[in-house]
């Protein structure tokens, strides 16, 4: 029984990772056709970095993810604090709305935002992308921070004030350090979601601001492009680093 369940786990992991391994191996394949091994080569990485538009899209995406993650972390953290600390009218509605944003199909969010931006006459580009990305990252940051706050002892802020800390000092010396791991984890999650997003970006981006996922999308729709293997490998390594960082932060804080 134990043997069976172990092999089953192994089999599913194998299926999950085969495509990723294939992708990595093929990124070093010299062959142009992409199906046969033509020897080790870094030519696709080279051609990737020589592609000016591609590099530009990469920078655009990084900048977008960086700003979207930061803005959503700030707003999300404040929201989580408000939900945690204050009693106010419509708290349940607010909670519900965040949950709905998180659960609703991305495409629904995408078209609704497209409608809004066109109605307002907002030029599709960096700003529209930023607003959209912050919106879909927000609930994830909120739940990450809320999870941390729910384990938070209500008496800690009081203890700090009892010992002579002003409200501001208390926030700086107790509240923020305690929720810091959640803030960082939320930021990393937001960053990754933003870097990965195709659905929403397809609708709300314009020609003035090309981002990486859309560039990849246009490349992979037809045929096989060996550069994508190289790019995918780079993105994979990048996400792995981010994920390990986030896990490390969370596990260190749990001790």
């Amino acid at each position: 029984m134990r043997w069976l369940s172990r092999s089953y786990l192994a089999l599913v992991y194998l299926l999950l990772y085969v495509p990723i391994v294939v992708l990595i191996v093929f990124s070093f394949n010299d062959s142009r056709t992409g199906y046969n091994w033509g020897g080790f080569s870094l030519r696709w990485y080279e051609s990737l970095f020589n592609n000016h538009a591609m590099v530009q899209a990469m920078w655009n995406s990084l900048w977008l993810a960086l700003t979207a993650a930061t803005v959503s972390t700030c707003i999300g953290a404040l929201t989580a604090l408000a939900l945690h600390r204050y009693r106010f009218r419509g708290k349940k509605v607010l909670n519900g709305m965040l949950f709905v944003v998180m659960m609703s199909p991305e495409i629904v969010l995408a078209i609704s935002l497209l409608g809004l931006f066109l109605l307002l006459g907002l030029k599709l580009g960096y700003v529209s992308l930023l607003l959209a990305h912050v919106t879909f990252c927000l609930p994830f940051v909120v739940i990450t921070v809320m999870a941390r706050l729910s384990g938070f002892d209500e008496r800690l802020p009081e203890a700090a004030r009892d010992l002579g800390a002003s409200d501001f000092t208390m926030t700086r010396t107790v509240l923020i350090p305690v929720i810091m791991p959640a803030l960082m984890a939320g930021w990393l999650l937001g960053f990754t979601l933003s870097m990965d997003d195709v659905v929403v970006s397809t609708f709300v981006s314009g020609p003035s601001y090309e981002i990486l996922p859309l560039r990849i999308y246009s490349m992979v729709r037809v045929g096989l492009k060996p550069e994508v293997n190289a790019l995918g490998t780079l993105l994979l390594v990048f996400s792995l680093v981010m994920l390990m960082l986030s896990q490390w932060i969370l596990s260190r804080s749990k001790q």
Partner: peptide, 22 residues
Amino acid sequence: IFLLIVPFWTNSLVRTYALKLI
């Protein structure tokens, strides 16, 4: 679990593309 969420943090277009290779 870490191994399970690695793909989740990896670009989904790229993963779909990898299936195409196969």
